[in-house]
Design a binder for these strands. Structure first.
Lengths: 188, 188
DNA sequence: TGTACATCAGTGAACGCGCGTTCACTGATGTAC
DNA sequence: TGTACATCAGTGAACGCGCGTTCACTGATGTAC
């Protein structure tokens, strides 16, 4: 089974990306090495040829989410974007229903933060996101308000059983946030 | 070891309350029956004299948090309270640092909502909380915005490593929220 | 009042299971001669 | 060009451990006589 030079590095990257997906969808603790490797059509023993421990993978996968992907996908913040568009995409049913491809703050950060196991890269990612939001706001100080609202609305909309109530949370937060921004822009 | 009539009911209640604390502090999945019973100076075998399964305890403990305690403690919403006071207490360092005695939405609801295992009582509790907030707002529609901001700011402040950044998130959300309310009140 | 028995909340060993981790092994391919 | 050997990503059985759960048992107290 000799493979080409890049093969092992590619497998490692596949593990990281699948972990980043599953950590957000199922939780870090609920994602086992066995099921993760099985999803990639590999056996669990091979995992330790790539990582010293599950903790090392957690570190790598969180780095990947927080720094490479950028923490708030699928509502991307790279390139040209308008704040209303970003808000609409963040508070969409697609984002709510697909945590695996979404923002890491309402999922992994919430899980690890609860127990005081927050990852240092979270700080870096949060500061970067607040900076980007601030550039699109009349008052950059409001970036914390906007991001908090987005994260909280997503948490609440996912934590509720009734789909109608869940939609109402997303709609309510989006409407109120967009109105607020318009009032601030015209007022300032 | 014959006990008085109320003894078993009291033990059951103690288990529920300790679980409600630990579910918020450590997470539902990370709280084992063994450690829970040990914390109450009981042995794990006795647990099944009170509950048919861990799932039944989860149900009971969530009901306790969501309906009896009221989901958003320690920032109580019962009796007389002003919205600014409530916001200040919710976004306090005490609340951030003691999830065990705090609001269930940024902890247990986030954990269970992630995997689609939300508890039906969450809906009821959320509606009640939105109703109470709405009564203190010029525009009741803004209740979703306020609660989302509170929950999101707590999640973010707990998910960050640097204490200063964490304080900045709490302070930023509190300031922006209070300013917003004042502007709305005087404007309306 | 004194003794024998019933009650039942709580005990603790044991179960099967999935977890993270280890390790001797496999076998397709590149290299040496 | 053909054969023997080295490489090493991936394999899969096995480990100790903690999980949720079961169950025969304990023993302090209430009740019956």
């Amino acid at each position: 089974m000799r493979y080409d030079e890049e093969h092992k590095a590619k497998t490692r990257q596949r593990i990281i990306e699948e972990a980043a997906r599953r950590f957000r969808r199922d939780g870090v603790n609920a994602t086992s090495v066995q099921t993760l490797m099985k999803a990639l059509k590999l056996t669990h023993g091979g995992f330790y040829g790539h990582f010293a421990s599950k903790d090392e993978l957690i570190d790598e996968a969180l780095r990947h989410c927080l720094l490479e992907i950028g923490a708030v996908t699928p509502a991307s913040l790279t390139g040209d974007w308008s704040l209303p568009e970003f808000i609409q995409r963040y508070l969409s049913t697609v984002h709510r229903d697909e945590p695996a491809r979404g923002c890491i703050f309402p999922t992994v950060s919430a899980e690890l933060g609860q127990r005081g196991e927050a990852h240092p890269a979270t700080d870096q990612a949060l500061l970067a996101r607040l900076g980007q939001l601030g550039e699109h706001l009349p008052d950059p100080q409001d970036a914390v308000l906007v991001l908090s609202t987005l994260v909280g609305a997503l948490v609440l909309s996912r934590g509720v059983v009734d789909p109608e109530l869940s939609d109402r949370v997303l709609d309510g937060a989006r409407t109120a946030l967009l109105e607020l921004l318009e009032a601030k822009s015209s007022g300032a």
